[in-house]
Computed example of a mutant assay.
Amino acid sequence: MKKTWVAACVAMACCATTATAEVNINGFASIKAGKASSGDTLYGYTDEIDFKNESLFALQVQSDLGEKLSVTAQIMARGRNDFDAEFEWAFLTYQLTDEWRLNAGRLRTPFYKYSDFRDVGYAYDWLRTPQSVYDLGFNTIEGVSLYHSSNFRNMQSNLQLVFGAYDGEVAVVGTESPAQINNIVGATWELSQDWLSMRLAYLVGDVSIEASSLNPLLQALSNLGLGSVAQSIDFNEDDGSFFGVGLNYDRNDWLMVAEYTHVKVEDSFYANQDSYYLSLGRRFGAFTPYVSYEKDEDDAKPEIYAALPANFPLRPTIATIVNSQWFDNSTWNLGLRYDFHPAAAFKVQFSSAKDKFTNSKDSLMALGVDLVF
């Protein structure tokens, strides 16, 4: 399905070119470097200076096919992937009315306030989006999205309805595993007025993950007549849900952004995740210093193994897997954005993270340039 949507959009773009339709090409890039304080990885960095981890280049092609139909594709090359270019998203757009718009293809999943342009570093002040919130594991779906823009009680209202599926990989027990999330249905609603905006998001889907490292354990439990315990561990069309709320304040050069998210997957060992961040900044001409605080608290599910006898041979293995989901991490960020060019910004950010369970601390210094063209 993924390749079909991309191929369809590319084909439409080619047809548009031969028909001399208007084609617009835009791009953005980030050139960044960073170094962590220890050998432990923080946001993909180690204690060696790395210029590839968060660097990227992207092109976005948009073609108006006429009669309210257009096609958009974005090609991304990330440094962490040796700058191998691939389609990040590709979709068709049909303007139903002045207020209603329909997109179909590979779309950015609208989890967060900055979902649509989280890779466009120039669009926000931080050096990176707050990872305690913006790190769910997948960013796109194949499906359709319906947008409605209007005025609501003197406020601008933007409603988005989405339906689709995800077919790719997610990390399970430290290993990338094939995953399918079917029947993704959700809605987001953002209200804005002058210097204040608020956003709500809610999505659900059926989560299935082929975690091969768990197969021996699951098979052993089934053979021992403990199929219910196996079902409480694995991911097999389990109900998953995402809830998010955001607030943005921008007035008299003072900036405040905050988001909170809650993620859970029923009947699996996946922890219930509560994450949030609060960011404050102040513009001084071309300079914008900021400070932010992030929190990621994941509650494991010890009830999965609590009823098993203490001497049950597989109990320690199950406990290890389940308890690996405990996570309580907090991060302070201090940074500065300098708009030295109308289309480019220099940024520097220091991050200090602390893991409550291991009592470990890591810090990261990173800098770079975000630009659009």
Rank of each mutant, 00 (worst) to 15 (best):
K2M: 10
K3A: 05
C9M: 12
M12F: 03
C14K: 00
C15K: 02
T18C: 10
V23Y: 04
Y43V: 08
L59W: 06
Q60L: 08
Q62I: 06
R78V: 00
D82P: 09
A85C: 11
E86N: 15
E88T: 11
E88Y: 15
E88A: 13
Y94P: 07
E99T: 10
W100Q: 01
L102R: 04
G105R: 02
Y112D: 02
Y112C: 04
D116L: 00
D119E: 15
W126A: 01
Q131D: 06
Q131I: 07
D135Q: 15
L136H: 14
G137T: 11
Q156P: 05
N158K: 15
F163I: 07
D167C: 02
E169M: 05
G186L: 11
A187H: 09
E190G: 08
D194N: 13
S197A: 04
Y202S: 12
S208I: 01
P216D: 13
P216H: 14
L224K: 10
G225K: 00
I233R: 08
D234P: 02
F242K: 02
F243K: 03
V245F: 13
N248I: 08
Y249K: 09
L255E: 10
V257K: 09
V257A: 07
L278V: 15
G285N: 05
A286E: 04
A286S: 05
Y290E: 11
E294H: 06
K295S: 15
D298R: 15
A300V: 08
A307K: 13
P313G: 00
P316R: 01
T317R: 02
I321A: 05
W326K: 07
F340K: 01
H341R: 04
Q349I: 04
F350Q: 02
M365H: 01
G368T: 03
